[in-house]
Amino acid sequence: MALCARNIFRLRSPYITVCVRSMSKGDPGSGAGQGGGTGGTIRDAGGAFGKREAAQEEQYFRKLQQEQLEKMRSSLKEEVDFHKKQIKAHEDAVKRHEKRLKDLK
């Protein structure tokens, strides 16, 4: 069995999940593995069709991972921009309060 497990881990952002896959013994698409289950009828048969399906599956998960990473990057960029705006607002408030303190003396 080429696909042993799919584990989903939640990151800090509540909107992003990452799919982590682990492979068992044998080449992907080479037939049924030793994991106690099968990868489906085409993958059980092995041969060219099994290898093709395994390649398509790998391509799907690579694409999914790239999309998830891009969402994570954009989310982190938005968070950085938000915090920079907050820093600017707090710095302006500090200057305002320091000026008021100076005027009171």
Rank of each mutant, 00 (worst) to 15 (best):
S30Q: 08
C4L: 08
L69G: 08
E91M: 13
R100H: 07
R96L: 14
H97R: 06
S24T: 04
A54Q: 02
M1E: 10
K102I: 05
L101P: 00
H83M: 02
Y15F: 07
K102Q: 07
Q34I: 13
K77D: 06
K77S: 04
L11V: 06
K102F: 14
I8W: 13
G40F: 01
K71A: 14
R21H: 09
F82Q: 05
R43G: 03
K63R: 11
R21Q: 13
E57C: 12
A54F: 06
G31F: 01
D92M: 10
K95S: 11
I16H: 06
Q34S: 14
K105Y: 03
K71M: 14
I42G: 01
E98S: 04
R12I: 07
T17I: 12
R100W: 07
A54C: 09
Q65L: 15
R100T: 09
K105M: 05
A89V: 05
F61K: 00
H90N: 14
K85D: 03
R73G: 00
P28W: 05
M72R: 08
Y15S: 07
K102E: 09
H97T: 03
K85M: 04
K25G: 01
I42T: 00
G33D: 05
E70R: 08
L11N: 05
T38G: 07
R96I: 09
E57I: 11
K99T: 12
S75D: 08
V18R: 08
L101N: 08
G37M: 06
D27I: 13
L104N: 00
R21F: 13
V80E: 04
E79L: 15
Y15A: 05
Q86T: 02
K85R: 03
I8T: 15
G26R: 11
Q66G: 12
G40E: 00
S74H: 09
K95F: 08
K77T: 04
R21G: 06
K84L: 12
F61M: 03
I8D: 11
A93P: 01
A5K: 02
G46S: 06
G39L: 00
G37C: 04
I8N: 14
C4I: 08
D103C: 02
D81T: 13
Q65N: 15
S22Q: 15
K99D: 10
D92R: 07
L69V: 06
K51E: 00
S22W: 12
K102Y: 13
A5V: 00
F9V: 12
